[in-house]
Design a protein around this nucleic acid. Structure first.
Length: 767
DNA sequence: TGCGTTGACCCTGGA
DNA sequence: GGTCAACGCA
């Protein structure tokens, strides 16, 4: 059997040029020779050979859409289109790499001249070029890209500057509103005009301040990487014309997850020739929170009159049972173009659903399933554990670690967002762009060099001057002792980095490590993370030297290019094939991947579908699509799990145990396709509301339900280990009442019991 | 004045 | 379980 592969149809392996092929993947390579289009079905062939003009390919899960895109590019090249005249947008860097690698296998070197990349990477490429030509007012070619954390810093400062009462505006909300505005191409001025309520006006004020701050620092955020290109092409027709003449064919993968700005970018590039080829699946649109706009698919034909519409409905990936289950669930959605996938594979095993006692028990079931797979001779990398939220990984991780099962978590804290990595990169950012205040404040006293709030206030009093220069003038006169020495060594280091910007990034990073004694700082922290962080730094150095050997075709220096890549790369881009470990990832991150065995954990109302979606039909449909994506990742087997009780943090910040009903999505799978099990024999019946909610699942979503919540000291009892004279060791899953009357629901092994507090010893004697 | 420790608040998803 | 602001200490 094969390991996890990119959406590939027919088992053709996803290979990236940086990753080594495993024997299994090499075996399949022959099958994907595309020049003669040997083994395409009729619909696929029609898509690949589509002539001029717009085309919308509705490609169901596992229907070979990546293959079609790749084959189409090869087909265009074979028809004499120059590689530099083709622009393809992919959803991940990894997909871009793989597409390029596959095309290279057919057409060789020429593939290097294609433009294949994510919207963001392509945006950087265009902006970098045009910035060199001076086409972007106020933005130099060495602009930096602010990631989420950097953005938060800026927004927090903007909110603080408004001097509102504590808690009036929250960073997260403001950031989301700014991002939404940018994705919809709403300028600061337009936002201000539309803002009527005091709340809206305050957000508008933050937006303005945020924009001005970024401009002042020659910084762009993720949304700017697209929005600024759209603005550029709109305001500078001659530049737009240049790109239109250059790119004769524009292709877009995962079209269902494009937002308005991306739509406008594509539209602007394809205007005139109209050779726009988009591939997507409305049933797999799962990024609405990021502005993805399904109307881009649903109204493609209106936006591009005369568009050909081609449907790929044959699935080559999953067994018939898996496909039937997925079809049945997604049929509950109303807002779709409508299609039914079919396949000619055998029925295969039924899906399995297990209701576990709590999340620890659920983790145990997952682990047991993995061990079963291994006993049958399977490999761990054939399995993936999917969940709705990253927070769910914790219980799974500890169970797998305890039993020595190797795993790799994808997502969560991205590699380049780790503290130690961002610290080191901030030195480079500062050297490249002294106006980058976020980078300055990140590292000016990291590692500690005797600088603190007092000096900070004096620098800030100097206003807009680059902070490094402010510090330089202070070091000359106003500072004494440790602060002076610290400031001087910092300034010297940055100056040296500046002078050495032409050197390879890895060399600069080594200089930073050496001068700052950064590693010693890590050791001194004594929090047990030192070894991990050191390893990450090692990896950063490797990534930096890898980058040096890659061509910078946008003409940017190594350092600027490396920093951009570091910001835009995601964890999913870095997953390696062939390692024997199970992957753990969110359903979102799993998009585009496939695995022989898929485990979807946490299938409870309020978690998957997520609680925030329950009041809104549109949002609920998005959750259902996400579940559909999760299930259709599987080739052969699906295990669905849920926990009767789960410890969670709620919005109120309360440590709570709640029993959720089983997810409605499980119930939407026809009963004959699922084997259901419960691992616990409840001596205590589940609270009535749990089943009531389940019964009412088809109706309007109920409020959050009477989920039992413990507050104060009681809350700390939930999840604690306790002992009972007859039942032995157990774990508290729910607490009710207080004082001597307190009663606890405790899981002893697979038994659930309700016990008075006085019969328990352990952590329960709290009032 | 900077540093280390303690308690509030907190997580949907991610380029 | 993780981060950050506020606190008192060197």
């Amino acid at each position: 059997m094969d390991g996890p592969l990119i959406d590939s149809n027919g088992g053709a392996p996803g290979l990236s040029d940086r990753l080594r092929a495993t024997p299994a993947t090499i075996r399949h390579r022959k099958a994907s020779t595309v020049s003669s289009l040997p083994d395409l079905n009729e619909a696929q062939r029609a898509a690949v050979e589509h002539g001029a003009g717009p085309a919308l390919v509705i490609a169901g899960a596992g229907s070979g859409k990546t293959r079609v895109l790749t084959a189409r590019v090869a087909h265009l090249l074979a028809r004499g289109i120059a590689p530099e005249a083709i622009l393809a947008f992919t959803f991940t860097n990894r997909a871009a790499r793989e597409m390029r690698a596959r095309i290279e296998r057919t057409v060789g070197e020429a593939a290097r001249r294609l433009w294949v990349g994510t919207f963001h990477a392509t945006g950087v490429r265009i902006l970098r070029r045009e910035a060199r030509g001076g086409a972007l007012p106020g933005i130099g070619p060495d602009f930096v890209i602010y990631d989420r954390e950097d953005q938060e810093t800026v927004v927090a400062a903007a909110i603080a500057a408004l001097e509102l009462p504590e808690g009036t505006l929250r960073t997260g909300e403001v950031l989301r509103r700014i991002s939404d505005a940018k994705n919809a191409l709403v300028s600061v001025e337009a936002f201000e005009r539309a803002a009527v309520s005091p709340h809206e006006r305050r957000i508008a004020a933050c937006y303005r301040r945020y924009r001005d701050t970024l401009r002042g620092q020659s910084a762009l955020d993720f949304d700017d990487l697209i929005g600024d290109v759209v603005t550029l092409l709109r305001d500078r027709p001659e530049i737009a014309e240049r790109y239109r003449r250059r790119f004769v064919h524009v292709l877009v993968d995962e079209y269902q997850d494009t937002n308005h700005a991306q739509f406008r970018l594509v539209e602007a590039l394809a205007a005139g020739h109209g050779n726009l080829f988009v591939v997507g699946d409305d049933d797999q649109s799962i990024y609405r929170f990021r502005g993805a706009d399904l109307t881009n698919v649903l109204e493609f034909e209106r936006a591009f009159p005369g568009a050909a519409v081609i449907r790929l409905e044959q699935n080559y990936r999953s067994t018939a049972n898996i496909l039937r289950a997925a079809n049945a669930v997604i049929a509950h959605n109303r807002d779709r173009k409508g299609k039914t996938l079919w396949c000619d594979r055998e029925d295969g095993a039924r899906l399995r659903f297990v209701l576990a006692a709590d999340e620890a028990d659920e983790a145990r079931c997952v682990r047991a399933r993995l061990e079963e797979h291994r006993r049958r001779g399977g490999r761990l990398d054939e399995c993936a554990i999917l969940y709705r939220t990253n927070a769910q990984s914790r219980a799974l991780e500890s169970e797998l670690r305890l039993h020595g099962i190797r795993y790799e978590m994808v997502g969560g804290v991205s590699f380049f967002a780790r503290r130690e990595v961002k610290d080191l990169l901030a030195y480079l950012r500062l050297a490249l762009n002294p106006a980058d205040r976020v980078a300055f404040w990140r590292v000016w006293n990291t590692p500690r060099r005797g600088l603190g709030d007092a000096v900070r206030a004096r620098i800030e009093a100097l206003g807009d001057a680059p902070p490094l220069e402010a510090l330089r003038s202070l070091a000359g006169e106003g500072l004494r002792g440790a602060a002076r020495g610290g400031a001087e060594s910092f300034i010297t280091l940055i100056d040296e980095l500046r002078a050495g910007l032409n050197a390879p990034p890895a060399e600069l990073l080594r200089l930073v490590l050496e001068r700052t004694d950064y590693l010693r700082m890590l050791d001194d922290e004594r929090d047990g993370t030192s070894a991990d962080r050191r390893a990450n730094i090692e990896e950063l150095l490797v990534a930096a030297s890898d980058h040096a050997s890659a061509p910078a075709d946008d003409g940017s220096g190594d350092v600027a290019g490396f920093l951009a890549e570091a910001t835009l790369v995601t964890d999913a881009d870095r997953v390696e094939e062939g390692a024997d470990r199970v992957l753990m990832l969110t359903a979102h991150t799993a998009k585009g991947l496939e695995f022989p065995v898929v485990i979807v954990a946490g299938l409870e109302e309020g978690l998957f579908p997520h609680g925030s979606s329950l009041d809104e039909p549109g949002q609920l449909e998005e959750e259902r699509r996400l579940f559909y994506v999760a299930v259709t990742r599987a080739r052969n087997e699906v295990l669905l799990t849920a926990a009767a009780y789960r410890r969670r943090f709620t919005a109120e910040g309360v440590f709570a145990a709640r029993g959720g009903a089983v997810s409605r999505f499980v119930d939407e799978i026809p009963a004959e396709l699922v084997d259901r099990e419960e691992t616990l024999q409840p001596a205590v019946r589940f609270p009535a509301w749990a089943s009531r909610r389940r019964a009412g699942a088809a109706g309007p979503a109920q409020s959050d339900g009477p989920a039992y919540r413990t507050r104060g000291p009681l809350a700390r009892v939930v999840g604690k280990e306790v002992y009972h004279e007859t039942f032995g060791r157990g774990v508290v899953v729910m607490a009710e009442g207080a004082g001597p009357d307190a009663r606890y629901t405790v899981r002893f092994g697979t038994q659930l019991k309700k016990v008075m507090g006085r019969f328990l010893t352990g952590g329960v004697d709290v009032d």
